[in-house]
Nucleic acid binder design. Structure first.
Lengths: 335, 335
DNA sequence: CTGAAAGCGCTAACAG
DNA sequence: CTGTTAGCGCTTTCAG
């Protein structure tokens, strides 16, 4: 490995001088500058970032902890974070917590030992045990998608997302509206949905709930079963369903189809998250999109602000989702 | 930040002794050991990995460069890599090249400067300019999914994947078989497919090719158009199509459906990659799966072998894909 | 404008 | 068993 010492010796100057030209510091006599740069090129010298970190106490590294990288939603967020971090001269260390709170804690300690400049966590649950220690330890931690205690956080208003779906259904002339997913939902989609309906003097009749769990990869099958069961036991009255997320929505759509119902002719469906396949499925799925790029951008901005300006105050940045209407809800009941 | 010095002073011992107990070295008198550990706990001391790296010349960091993290296929690979690396005590720095060869080069230099112990690249193209410099610079580089010059690589036999699809079609009694995708395809799926057909005295008639590009997010739409155009201009004779990847397969399926053809009653379809949604679409899509976990595991193993044992020889590890049969090809033409 | 010297936090001989 | 010393590669005063 070639070091500054090598360069210095070859150029007949001191290490400090090499350091100065590498970092564009001060004024170094043009002649020496050129000579040094030439040797740097020749030997393809890159300053050792580890040594730089040690002295500057800055690693230009950001730790990112997510429940699982392969989940399309998280991987899109990570991509957004990486792109934004890279623009600012940072790299990211990605950690897969597997939704396990112990591993989250473990990764935090690892990242702490690695002297990362900041950490972005997409928490698995609404708590982050042992995080306080780290906070006390002067390293900025930002939670993304979930708000926890006194941590800075970047959130998306699921309530407003739900409200937008309600408005959409109302505009399309639906009167008898349902919901598929867990009740209550932790994020508040259902609450926002119901509140907005109420403003328009509508409500979800109790028989229009299809309660179902929705987490993980099997969401679609779980919801398929729940929906099928529902259809056998109830007379379907609703003409539109809001479903807690896209994957669950696919499960529901398949159940409805297999029961002989047509989407959107008989039934409108709207999902949440606007995952990749919403635009690829048949029918294409209307869905509430989270502003992923913005989430990445804002998160990095806030974190860097904390890092560089030692901002003391807590941020809770609330971003707005937006509904993307596709075929699954494109029938106007008024007409 | 609390350092070894703090611990040492508080315990009334030297830094070396602290270092020894932290690293489980040598024998330290039990009494001192306990005293030191107690203080370590109290102060929540974690050794500074940056300083450790500087002296040991090992960072326990692996760089991963991928075309785009948010692509489900790549994100699954990254997850597999992360999990495997973590088991071995390594963390990964994830870099998004955006399929841009300049950025790939740029990231390589950054990673080099960061003293990562090794780099895994999922290359965008079949070349890696300027990588040779790095190789010369003693840092192990492994290419994943694509084989390049003299680099170590972990590959999946697309040829064998194609062959497996051919055997499947033959078993199902298809005689008139087609292919949708680029001709020739770089990875060799088509070649393997044709060769296997030939073994069984079958071939793809020239009118059974639907040539189409397939890369990127719009693959599905591009293939939809190509397929629709094909259907208008040709009499469909094939009863089964092998499609270059899943996304393209969805595009083709939609085109066929819109044309009034039923899958699999009229036409069997098999895709490639076994992406998440193959199991979620209707009909569910038969697809050739790449052994992603194994890819992650093997890649990390080979890389660590290079790192730790300074292995000189080149590896080219070829892994086998496997066909997953789902509804889209579950009709037996013999019957 | 430039070199010498000290030090970032940790490890590894080398004595004792 | 344990302390002293030197040094990893780089930056940063401080003189000159």
């Amino acid at each position: 490995m070639t070091t500054m010492k090598d360069i210095a010796e070859k150029a007949g100057v001191s290490r400090s001088t090499v350091s100065r030209v590498i970092n564009g510091h001060d004024s170094v006599k043009e002649e020496k500058r050129k000579k040094i740069m030439k040797i740097v090129e020749e030997l393809n010298f890159k300053p050792n970032k580890v040594a730089q970190s040690l002295v500057s106490n800055k690693s230009y590294l950001i730790g990112v902890i997510a429940p699982n990288i392969s989940n399309p939603f998280y991987s899109e967020i990570i991509e957004a974070l990486e792109i934004e971090a890279n623009k600012k001269g940072y790299n990211i260390i990605v950690c897969n917590s597997g939704g396990n709170i112990e591993r989250e804690k473990n990764y935090l300690e690892i990242l702490y030992g690695r002297q990362v400049d900041g950490i972005i966590v997409i928490p698995s649950e609404y708590k982050l045990p042992h995080f306080q220690e780290l906070i006390d330890n002067d390293i900025p931690v930002l939670t993304l998608t979930k708000n926890i205690n006194n941590f800075d956080s970047v959130l998306v208003s699921h309530q407003n997302g739900g409200a937008e779906v309600a408005r959409h259904f109302i505009e399309m002339g639906h009167k008898n509206i349902g919901y598929i997913g867990p009740v209550p939902d932790k994020e508040g989609k259902l609450l926002g949905f119901k509140n907005e309906l109420k403003k328009h003097c509508l409500e979800i009749e109790s028989s229009n709930y299809i309660e179902s769990d929705f987490a993980g990869r099997s969401a679609s099958q779980v919801v398929y079963k729940a929906t099928t069961k529902y259809l056998k036991e109830h007379d379907l009255k609703a003409t539109a369903f809001f479903v807690v997320n896209d994957l669950a929505a696919f499960g529901a759509i398949h159940a409805f189809s297999d029961f002989g119902l047509k989407i959107p002719e008989d039934l409108s469906i709207v999902g949440f998250d606007n995952t990749f396949f919403a635009a690829e499925s048949r029918p294409t799925l209307s869905s509430v999109a989270q502003p992923i790029e913005e989430m990445g951008k804002v998160s990095i901005e806030i974190l860097l602000d904390k890092i560089n300006n030692k901002e003391e105050k807590y941020f809770t940045k609330l971003l707005e989702p937006y509904l993307i209407v596709r075929d699954s809800s494109r029938i106007n009941k008024k007409s």
